[in-house]
C-alpha cells in the first residue's frame, strides 16, 4: 500500500519534470536553454520515474536493470548535451564572425540557432 502510494507520487512528479522539459524545448528561445530544459527532464524526470518503478520491482535483478537504465541514460544524455552545446556554440561563433565580416547586423540575430 505504502509502496504503491510512493510509486504514484514519484512517477507523477517525474512526469511533471518531463512536462516542464517539453514545454521548455518548445518555448525557450535558443539551443543552450533548450538543452538545459531537455537534460532536466532526462536526468531528474527519468530518475524519479525509475525510483517510483523500483518500489514495484519483484526482485533484485529487476532493480539492477532499472538502475542500469537510469545510469546509461544519464551518461548518454550528459554526453549528447555537451556535444550539441559545443556544436551550437561553435556555429554561433562562426555566424557571428561571418556577420562581422559582412557588416550585416541582421545576421547576428541568428546566433545560437542550430
Amino acid at each position: 500500500m505504502l509502496a504503491d502510494a510512493l510509486t504514484i507520487v514519484l512517477t507523477g512528479t517525474g512526469m511533471l519534470f518531463f512536462f516542464a522539459g517539453t514545454a521548455g524545448i518548445i518555448r525557450f528561445p535558443d539551443t543552450l536553454s533548450r538543452l538545459h530544459a531537455l537534460t532536466k527532464a532526462d536526468n531528474v524526470g527519468l530518475g524519479l520515474l525509475i525510483l517510483g518503478l523500483a518500489f514495484q520491482a519483484p526482485d533484485l535483478l529487476t532493480l539492477g536493470k532499472l538502475a542500469l537504465v537510469w545510469a546509461l541514460a544519464l551518461v548518454a544524455a550528459g554526453t549528447t548535451a555537451q556535444l550539441v552545446a559545443r556544436s551550437a556554440w561553435q556555429s554561433g561563433e562562426q555566424s557571428a564572425e561571418r556577420s562581422a565580416d559582412a557588416h550585416d547586423p541582421a545576421e547576428s540575430t541568428l546566433r545560437g540557432d542550430p
Partner: peptide, 13 residues
C-alpha cells in the same frame, strides 16, 4: 574530450 570518454565508457556494455 567528452566524446572520447564516452567512446571508452560505453563499448564494453
Amino acid at each position: 574530450g567528452v566524446m572520447a570518454t564516452f567512446g571508452r565508457l560505453l563499448p564494453p556494455f
